[in-house]
Amino acid sequence: MTLMKAYLRGLWEGKFILGYTLLLSLTLFIAAPFLMIALRSVGKGWFGRLWLPPQLTLDWYRWAVEVGNIPEVMKNTLIIGAIAVIVSTVIGIFAGWAFGRRQMPGKEVLMAIILLPRMIPPITYALGVAKIFYTLELVDTYLGVAMAHVSVCAPYAILVLSATFEGLDERVLEAAGVCGANTIKRFIYVVLPLILPGILASMIFSFTHSYNEFTLTLLTYGPNTVTLPIRTYLAVGDGYWEITSAMAVIMVVPSLLILAMIQRRAKPEKLVGGFKGV
């Protein structure tokens, strides 16, 4: 509504007409696919040249839950995501502390090497990961799929956390020491509150990555570890657009919630570094 009002006001004032036209078409460009998915997921008998579905129904969601086995799939996705988040955050905390707070020769080079997976298309190392996991029989286990996700999540966790730890001011710690806090107290009351936002950010990044990850999952999943993106992909292959749309809605809502949650805290530039399983 505000949008329409702003547009009309812009027209009225004769300024920014071009600008608002561009913004409005951008909004349409980005939002229209979601609208189509949402409408398709509740529409019934929507054929031919109709702008809106003639009947509304929730049948497709029922089908998605019953036939697509969404609760089971959701459980898989969450378990795999949790393992991937824990592993990559632990890796990130250790390596981030080393990169952010400790002196070492060749730090830049080492960091560049460890962050190398971001430079290479995931499918290239996904092949090798899949091959190794087949021999180790890690394919189609929660641990295996989660470890495959770690290869994508961990570089981002390291990146975010080393920036966080680097920003930690030594003088604050010294001040706490002077005021009589011992190491444990200093850690709990001073260090932890300062680094917690960074750790949370890294966890959210990692989880979103794991949640969206498609390439590596496709090469390591099995019947017991179908995740949401894979389930949606399989449904696309089956050709039932309505059910696929229902699954897509179920899948996209948490992503948008996370975006709404973090958009006030995190700067968009940081988001660009993260996200996307391609």
């Binding site: 951008l26 657009w241 996209v252 975006l259």
Partner: peptide, 24 residues
């Protein structure tokens, strides 16, 4: 609002985006 809008394609899985675009 527009800034948030721009971020949307970043956080949703590419698969879903492609699906919606195909439909639209």
């Amino acid at each position: 609002f527009y800034r948030l809008m721009i971020l949307v394609p970043l956080v949703i899985p590419g698969l879903i985006g492609a699906l919606g675009l195909l439909l639209f």
